[in-house]
């Protein structure tokens, strides 16, 4: 872990400076500063509407920041002259709803972006596709269409599709939130392996066990700001801030939290889908 921290100091793979994002009058991000080192795994946690998904989407410019800068691998994405398509090739993104291309087979989902975007030839694209399907344990589904796969399988294909582009960084936007509980494990196992291989990962998640065991750092967000940033032991194990404690206790035992906090209306408010 300590070597990793040193690496982080040497080179920040993802760097966010003074980031603000508003949708109309609604300011979702209110000044975010964040650095993620090479090979570091950072889990972003927080209540719905805290802005964590928006932050992640700003890192590959799916959302245009209102103010501030985003760097990935030393390139400033927020620079108006940057070739955003070229930068995005280096950033893999996995969505909550998988977003596989339903009109293509599993293999074609992996080969088409390689061929169209990276201009790889047919043979190479097919080879890379096969390698990455094996990596997520779905070689036998190569010829299937996404609609015939379970949610967990679809999400693993989506991870393989992103990996086939050879990204330097992987972003995960609540990758297991749309899955049935029994399918979550397979996806997390793939992500865990990826983390062990040294991939730089930024993961928005509600999976506290995953965050505790896999993350190098956990970032807790609320109300559009980073409230707490530290090791899993610090942030999840012994949170310093009241808001973090409140969030964690509610996550671990929703019923308990309501009794302890004694403010049911506040709890109800926080539970409303915000983003």
């Amino acid at each position: 872990m300590s070597e990793k921290s040193l690496g982080a100091l040497a080179r920040a793979e993802i760097e966010v400076r003074g980031l603000h994002k508003s949708f109309g009058d609604n300011e979702v991000l209110r000044g975010i500063d964040l650095e993620i080192g090479q090979g570091e795994v950072v889990c972003v946690i927080g209540p719905s509407g805290s802005g964590k998904s928006t932050l992640l989407r700003c890192v590959n410019l799916l959302e245009e920041p209102s103010k501030g800068q985003v760097f990935v691998g030393g390139t400033e994405l927020t620079d108006p002259d940057v070739d955003i398509d070229a930068v995005r090739r280096r950033i893999g993104m996995v969505f909550q709803q998988f977003n596989l291309f339903p009109h293509l087979t599993v293999t074609e989902n992996l080969t088409l972006p390689q061929r169209r975007v990276l201009r790889r030839d047919k043979a190479r694209a097919a080879r890379v596709a096969a390698e990455n399907l094996e990596r997520v344990g779905l070689s036998e589904k190569a010829a299937a269409y996404p609609s015939s796969l379970s949610g967990g399988q679809q999400q693993r294909v989506a991870i393989a599709r992103a990996l086939a582009m050879g990204p330097e960084v992987m972003l995960f936007d609540e990758p297991t939130s749309a899955l049935d509980p029994e399918l979550v494990g397979d996806v997390l196992a793939v992500m865990r392996r990826l983390a062990n291989e040294g991939m730089t990962m930024m993961v928005v998640t509600h999976e506290m066990t995953f965050a505790r065991e896999v993350a190098d750092r956990v970032v807790f967000m609320d109300g559009g700001v980073i409230v707490e940033d530290g090791t899993p032991a610090q942030v999840i194990g012994s949170p310093r801030h009241e808001r973090t404690r409140h969030f964690l206790s509610r996550l671990l035992d929703p019923a308990m939290a309501e009794v302890e906090e004694g403010t049911p209306d506040q709890v109800g408010k926080a539970e409303q889908p915000g983003d």
Partner: peptide, 22 residues
């Protein structure tokens, strides 16, 4: 669905290429 365009863009497709291929 909007997610299709987002997935294509996040893989590095240009807007025109995403439109044509996806």
């Amino acid at each position: 669905p909007r997610g299709q365009l987002e997935a294509a863009r996040s893989l590095g497709f240009s807007p025109a290429r995403a439109m044509i291929s996806i």
